[in-house]
């Protein structure tokens, strides 16, 4: 554990809880992509199956359980409790275009051909692109609520902080995993455009709207 990893995890946790609390408090999931949330649920499920097979630390296990429950809680709020507020007309990204290629890639580029390893690799590849339906939705509607912008910023920062963590681990532990590093870089690049808008608009008190 290092400071980059800890900040990354806390940023990730903040993002997930922020989204859950926002939907609960406003009784609405307007502007949130249900498709991205479905992809994140698949990501957490396929990655954290190792809760049953390997123990790392209490910290890791608790975080995994929180991520999984928050993710399914968000799906419950979006597709059941506050379903009428779900803006499905603007959530039109075809997620099969992400699910299938990520699955194929996880069979092609993987460390070991075991079920858990392929599922873990799949979760890494799918996570890298899981935000695309959400970003597509923001670009279609041309705007995002401020709280949604904070959610996206925290979620994007998490993987950027993980990149610093991997650099740190490379120098301190001589440890390198190119699968997560390249996927993590792709994931972070996808947020760059949004980061720019967030810094130039939202942090100056303006609403995030596209020209």
């Amino acid at each position: 554990m290092n400071i980059f990893r800890l900040c990354g995890d806390l940023s990730h946790l903040l993002a997930i809880l922020l989204l859950l609390v926002k939907i609960w408090k406003t009784r609405s999931c307007a502007g949130i992509s249900g498709k991205s949330q479905i992809l994140f649920a698949i990501v957490y499920t396929t990655r954290y199956l190792d809760l049953f097979t390997s123990f790392v630390s209490i910290y890791n296990s608790v975080m995994k359980i929180v991520f999984l429950s928050a993710s399914y809680g968000t799906l419950y709020l979006m597709f059941y409790k506050f379903k009428p507020t779900y803006d499905h007309n603007h959530d039109s990204f075809r997620i099969l275009y992400l699910i299938v290629p990520a699955l194929v890639l996880s069979f092609v580029i993987v460390h070991a051909y075991t079920l858990m390893e392929v599922l873990w690799t799949y979760s890494i590849y799918l996570e890298a692109v899981a935000i695309m339906p959400q970003l597509f939705m923001v670009s279609r509607t041309g705007e995002a609520e401020t709280i949604t912008s904070h959610y996206l910023f925290a979620l994007g920062s998490y993987r950027a902080l993980y990149i610093l963590n991997w650099i740190y681990r490379y120098y301190t532990e001589d440890f390198l995993d190119l699968i997560v590093i390249i996927a993590g870089i792709v994931q972070t690049i996808l947020y760059c455009d949004f980061f720019y808008l967030y810094i130039t608009k939202v942090l100056k008190g303006k609403r995030l709207s596209l020209p």
């Binding site: 790392v56 890791n60 995993d177």
Partner: peptide, 10 residues
């Protein structure tokens, strides 16, 4: 191995 070590992350 490489793959077993990265699994200590989230």
């Amino acid at each position: 191995s490489y793959s077993s070590k990265i699994h200590d992350e989230l």
